[in-house]
């Protein structure tokens, strides 16, 4: 492993200052499950790592009325097990509970899952579907940006050199919304997603879809909203034909690549198949709240 220094800043303020000073030679160390692998394999090289694990400003889940605030250093297992997440953004907890292995979930953090910017990152999908906003701190002050805008490509984000992700603000699902997350892996646990899908849906009393969000992972340079599908579904009364058509439209919006986990053609088939299944589940699910 390439050698690096380790610093554990005593406060958020000193983290921000030290990190800014280190410029591109510094990295934030949270769970380490992604960063340390990359450092060891030589993909990433940094002179100094700043450990944020004990910074209380960056940890924990707080209920702020219409939204939840989740610290960047909050562990994935805590999101998966959190009662408030389960009851207000259930598909986020579902996604968290399927990320990596139990050992990984006990270390990995929400912030890490976001800033590593993998197109297959499981928690990012429900966060996009909820229109979550990311809060950054820097010497220049705080900045908020929507997670959808933040993601630019595989490993590419809009983050600035001196910025630290402090947390994420996640709007709660409104009453009557139903949500779901599906992970398609090559095995039933500890698998990087070949395709993942998150969505929520809101229907009116007559069963007509008022609003819907559908986010696809691992089939484009970043996780993407299936906007055409959303438009198509709004105002429709879902039946099998409608859902099939929605699934077909969704597959068309994906632009997967072929890699070790799947081919382009195979991924399109999976997107279509699992979108249909996800919508089916959403339509038949009991109301989450």
């Amino acid at each position: 492993m390439a050698a690096f220094d380790y610093v554990k800043p005593p406060s958020l303020e000193s983290l921000i200052n030290d990190y800014a000073q280190a410029k591109s030679e510094g990295a934030i160390l949270a769970g380490g499950t992604d960063l340390l692998v990359k450092i060891r394999s030589g993909l990433v090289s940094r002179r100094v790592l700043f450990d944020i694990n004990d910074l209380h400003e960056m940890k924990g889940i707080s209920d702020e009325g219409d939204s939840l605030r989740i610290g960047a250093a909050t562990r994935i297992c805590d999101v998966a097990d959190s009662n408030v997440v389960q009851s207000t953004v259930p598909f986020l907890s579902l996604a968290a509970s399927q990320l990596g292995s139990p050992q990984i979930r006990n270390r990995a953090t929400v912030g890490g899952n976001i800033v590593s910017a993998s197109p297959a990152a499981d928690t990012v999908l429900p966060l996009i579907a909820m229109g979550a906003r990311l809060r950054f701190g820097s010497q220049g002050g705080n900045r908020e940006v929507s997670i959808e805008k933040f993601m630019e490509g595989p490993g590419q984000t809009d983050i600035r050199e001196d910025e630290v992700l402090i947390g994420v603000v996640v709007p709660k699902l409104s009453n009557g919304c139903k949500s779901h997350f599906i992970k398609v892996g090559r095995r039933k646990a500890v698998a990087i997603s070949v395709v993942n899908i998150a969505g929520w849906i809101k229907t009116d009393r007559t069963g007509v879809i008022e609003d819907v969000r559908l986010v696809l992972g691992a089939v484009a340079p970043t996780a993407i909203r299936a906007g055409e599908t959303e438009t198509f579904l709004r105002g429709k009364r879902p039946n099998e034909v409608v859902l099939k058509e929605a699934a077909r439209i969704t597959a068309g919006q994906s632009s997967p690549i072929s890699d070790i986990r799947g081919t382009q053609k195979g991924r399109r088939l999976l997107v279509e198949a699992w979108t249909f299944r996800l919508l089916q589940i959403l339509m038949t699910q009991n109301e989450a709240n």
């Binding site: 398609v184 090559r186 799947g262 081919t263 053609k265 195979g266 991924r267 088939l269 999976l270 198949a273």
Partner: peptide, 8 residues
């Protein structure tokens, strides 16, 4: 054998 092979 992957699921998409079956679908194909």
């Amino acid at each position: 054998v992957y699921p998409e092979h079956i679908l194909e």
